[in-house]
Simulated scan of single mutants.
Amino acid sequence: MTLPLRPASGEGPPHLPALGLPALYAACVLAYGGLAPATVWAWITLAAAGTAVVVGAIGRIVHPEPAGGAPHLERGPGAARLFALAVGGALVLIVAAGQLNRASLWLSPLPAALWVASGQARSRGGPGWVPALAQAMGPVAGWVAVRGIVEGPAWLLAAATALWLGRGVDVRSPGTRLAHAGAVALWVMTGWACGRVGWYFGGIALAAALLAWYHADAARPAGDPAASRRVLIVHAAVGLSVLAGSLLDVVTAP
């Protein structure tokens, strides 16, 4: 259940963890095998919003210093207000997760903790596996919210999301190309594991085409002012393609 905000430092390449939100909802759709009741969607969304508030507030209380310095703690009335906001967000998260099932309730602190660690790791040049693990929690939390347990397809979705978004926007790296190819392969394996058919794989094909264009577009000269905007648009379209394919497949299934 993740919809965390951009780290407070604002440095480095554009990276919006909220791009992984469609993966959360796609996991819910595939886990339910159809459209879950509106109340389930509402509680999942509320839990994601609570997570966003917690992560955003803590990210502003603990400011990572530029150039990999030690974190700087916010002090004074501003820190008190941010702390109160974080507590409020945590209460929203806990209440919403508790309305889903017991497993979601116990799992609820983990995504927020991982996203806080992810923000610090990105700002301070920490290990790349921390953001990847935070991204992977979205599909796992979505699956657990519906079924109350973690099953094989949830792990496949988690790994696919980690490979897709875990490396950020370093599109010129050969490792990113391999990661995105692996994400597409894992999405296909998820469809087979869930018994999905045409529409789902159509959505995956569109996502793969978008990622291929994304890497081809990287051949443009560095410093293109429109590059950041294209990064966000393409990754948002990839996530929505996977979600739309999942939705269409379950609603049209006999």
Rank of each mutant, 00 (worst) to 15 (best):
A27K: 00
Y200H: 06
R229W: 11
L21I: 04
P7V: 01
Q120W: 13
W143K: 06
G223Y: 08
A218T: 02
W41D: 09
A158P: 02
G223E: 09
G202Y: 13
A117T: 06
V62M: 14
G68K: 11
T176W: 04
P127D: 15
G191T: 07
V146A: 05
G12P: 08
P37C: 11
T252P: 02
L247G: 04
L247W: 08
I58K: 00
L93N: 11
T2M: 14
P17N: 13
R196I: 14
P225Y: 07
V150E: 02
A159M: 06
V197W: 10
Y214V: 08
L19R: 01
A134W: 01
W199D: 11
G10M: 05
W43D: 03
R167D: 04
L35W: 15
P13L: 13
N101F: 11
L247Y: 02
W192E: 14
L248W: 02
A117H: 01
R124F: 03
I149W: 10
R172K: 14
D170Y: 06
R229K: 11
A205G: 09
V144R: 02
L3I: 11
A181V: 14
T39N: 12
Y214M: 08
G10D: 06
G138N: 03
V238N: 05
A219G: 13
L178V: 15
Y25C: 04
V197P: 00
A208D: 14
G33A: 12
Y200I: 06
G98R: 05
M189N: 00
P254F: 09
A48D: 15
P254A: 13
L21F: 10
L24A: 00
A38T: 11
I94E: 07
A181C: 12
R124E: 06
W115F: 13
A42G: 06
V87M: 15
V171M: 12
V188D: 05
L85E: 14
G88K: 01
G56K: 03
H63R: 15
P225C: 06
P174K: 04
L85N: 11
V231I: 14
A117L: 09
H215W: 05
P13C: 00
L105M: 07
W164P: 05
L30D: 03
G10F: 00
A236M: 05
V150R: 08
A205F: 01
A181P: 01
G12L: 08
A48Y: 11
E65I: 10
P109S: 10
T252S: 14
